[in-house]
Design a protein around this nucleic acid. Structure first.
Lengths: 223, 223
DNA sequence: GGCCAGCTGTTCACAAGTGAACATCCCGAA
DNA sequence: TTCGGGATGTTCACTTGTGAACAGCTGGCC
């Protein structure tokens, strides 16, 4: 029996003290902190480091030739990003920016490569991250291919809400409808329309933050 | 200067004799051969093995609740697939089928995990694969978000054509317009319309196989 | 207080994409 | 050779999404 493709829950990444790990391995490392909206790296920059989120949330966005912006990932504690530099990518293909105050660990590419060779525990963890990321991006792609913008918005809201786990109505980090549109892949006017619809139906509440009634909003996904 | 997101060439995966590698490591392994159109595994099946393509080409497709089908990847020699089982996925989320006669190597999940721990060369190779895959899927997603179906079709044709490398007009494996539509993420009538348009403009030739004039078709991507 | 910037709410003409129908065309099997 | 099934070519009414515009709101800052 085929399952709905996008239904598998976000993989619960076990916490991992990369900083302590690096310290005990005697590896040089840097910790940086960013304020909300601060840019961590920009599309086109030289790609020299891998990042690991200690705290906060980071979004990766891509700017098209025509000026449109798309958000390809929203990441949180325990996620890696910027790992494209380990492959052949000499430049960043996306811009990384903090969505809330964040602290990230920076590891230079040569050291990361070295450690992936010599530290099986890190390699294992990193592979797990890549697998999870891959599954998520594939689900996003399938979602784009199959679903209308109304359903995609509902899915994004549900995923963001359960991001902090706990399953109960959890406030979503402050985020404009413009940003939501960039995540969902549609226009702001469309997001606005459906947000009001969902609110009228009692599926969400919002003024400043958004509160999602998961059980109700889920209905939208199943037609 | 931001680069066009989908412009980075498919990563040229260096050949890797996984079979020989496994043999010398004394690991149990199985080789299977499939005919064109044969199903390797189906969406919903128990996910117990990782596959490695020795030869041929394999597509991964997902079926929606509503009966629509989408192709999420077309893979070739040297690619892994079915690696989702290494993460938390107990079931296949996609169907894998041979697009041409293919031989694949099958490795059971526990052995793959064991080897990723003990064989740095394999782990490295596997990480490289996951990074490349991730980049490609992200590009596909961005392509969906930014581009019209005409441009997406052009991009898919270009990627398929240069798949075998060499850069010169290379015949694309026989593939129906229906399948192309599932890869591009649109309807057959749309694909048919644009294929004829491209043919009229001299960008491609086709009766049975498709021949892509890369230099010409590329124009479509840049408006 | 008054101003500005950014976000929200709303509308609308227009563009793009869908899906279903029907007419060929081609090729391999009986 | 004929038949049937799959592929292609073509059309069209209908749905969905776009992008640009304009009018409030609201909150921070001088």
């Amino acid at each position: 029996m085929p399952r709905k493709a996008s239904s598998s829950p976000a993989k619960p990444l076990p916490p991992f003290d990369l900083q302590g790990f690096l310290a005990s391995a005697g590896v040089a490392r840097t910790i940086r902190t960013y304020k909300r909206s601060a840019v961590i790296f920009s599309q086109g920059d030289a790609a020299t480091d891998v990042f690991y989120i200690q705290n906060g949330s980071v979004k990766l966005s891509v700017l098209s030739r025509t000026g449109k912006e798309a958000v390809v990932a929203v990441l949180g504690q325990g996620d890696f990003f910027g790992e494209g530099c380990l492959a052949a990518q000499p430049r960043r293909i996306a811009t990384a920016s903090a969505m809330s105050a964040s602290t990230v660990l920076v590891v230079e590419k040569p050291q990361m490569i070295e450690m992936l060779h010599t530290q099986p525990a890190l390699a294992e963890r990193f592979i797990a991250h890549m697998l999870a990321r891959n599954i998520r991006v594939e689900e996003d792609l399938v979602d784009q291919l199959f679903n209308s913008s109304e359903k995609r918005l509902a899915r994004v809201l549900l995923l963001l809400a359960r991001y902090g786990k706990g399953d109960h109505p959890l406030p979503i980090p402050k985020m404009s409808q413009e940003t939501l549109a960039e995540i969902v892949g549609t226009t702001r006017s469309r997001v606005n329309f459906f947000m009001n619809k969902f609110r009228d139906l009692g599926f969400i509440e919002y003024n400043g933050d958004i509160k999602v009634k998961s059980a109700l909003l889920t209905v939208v996904l199943h037609d």
